[in-house]
Design a protein around this nucleic acid. Structure first.
Lengths: 180, 180
DNA sequence: CTGCACATGTAAACGGTTACATGATTGA
DNA sequence: TCAATCATGTAACCGTTTACATGTGCAG
């Protein structure tokens, strides 16, 4: 008789996913998130530390004192039950994808502004996409060194999306400039 | 001396934006959101009704009894101060764009699964993008009839993104199938 | 000796979803 | 008369961000 894998909170998913590769401290996790998943899945200390405590209580991860130098430090490793819960979630095709994009909402309503102001909004949006593209290109070498299928592919998704965003802004800037 | 426009909560932004086009009831707003902005900015009744009350208290919108048939009904119209606050927000190039995409997180970790399971995850993701594409094509005529710049352009963004998503899944399915 | 990175945590405020609750009107 | 749609709202719960709080160790 197999136990049904525990339900994972959103933050638990990134944490377990990262711990599946290697044991890490909360601080480590934050660092890895900021250099990889942050572009589509961020996490703050305010979520990470309490969630680590909860996951340990549930037995999905195990804490271990791992001081480095003279610094106090606790690392966590994923347990078998944790790995089961993680892979059960990854395998599950059900997913709610509520996206929120403030930039798109602005463009949706940009027709309320005068043409010059609307152009400025689109130019700012283009800048955002271009910046994201640049930041993703910076971390590309990291993702390219991944040992498993996944990180590089997701990064390529981000690159494609950002390129599309720039192109879309350019097209609409042209459209706005040719209006009237 | 001009008063600094009021800060707008996230939900206030959609509400004011939609009321800028025409007076509507809370129920109307929900309906319009569900047929237009929902793909990048959703809103539930639990947010809409309390927010309408707050916006009215702030003087950014004005309530008016507008029963239809025998049904009780309150519509809201945007005030001049409301319009100022709205356009100030649209014009402001500052925007925080924290996106969360559960599908991407799954793909990020999909290398933990066996190849067949990984393929199934990518196939499910492809389905999601294809469905979104289909739903956006359905509402395309609505957006095409917009009287202002904005809605159609944002819809085209959605179409482009979804098409890219399908393509990206197909490429990665090919990659997975050719692995080993 | 100073500032930065390491390291861990809590509390308040905020925003959002879901479930619940209620009731009227209309069309089949 | 029954179901769907119109219409409005609240309360509990969940998750996230931000600000705060504290302290260590190392490099310049």
């Amino acid at each position: 008789m197999e136990a049904k894998p525990a339900h994972l909170s959103p933050t638990a998913r990134v944490i377990l996913g990262l711990l599946a590769a290697a044991p890490r401290s909360g601080y480590d996790i934050k660092g890895v998130v900021d250099n990889s998943t942050r572009f589509f899945w961020a996490a703050s200390y305010g979520q990470i530390y309490p969630e680590l405590k909860r996951l340990a209580e549930q037995g999905l991860i195990a804490a271990e004192a791992a001081p480095e130098g003279g610094r106090r430090r606790t690392t966590f490793r994923i347990t078998d039950e944790g790995r089961d819960a993680l892979t059960a979630w990854v395998r599950d095709p059900d997913l709610v994808n509520e996206m929120r994009d403030e930039g798109l909402l602005k463009v949706f309503f940009v027709g309320l502004l005068e043409r010059e102001d609307a152009i400025a909004v689109l130019e700012a949006a283009r800048e955002k996409y271009a910046e994201k593209l640049a930041r993703l290109r910076e971390i590309e070498p990291l993702a390219a060194g991944a040992d498993r299928f996944g990180p590089l592919e997701v990064l390529q998704y981000g690159l494609g999306m950002s390129e599309f965003g720039v192109k879309w802004c350019d097209e609409n800037l042209k459209k706005l400039r040719e209006m009237d």
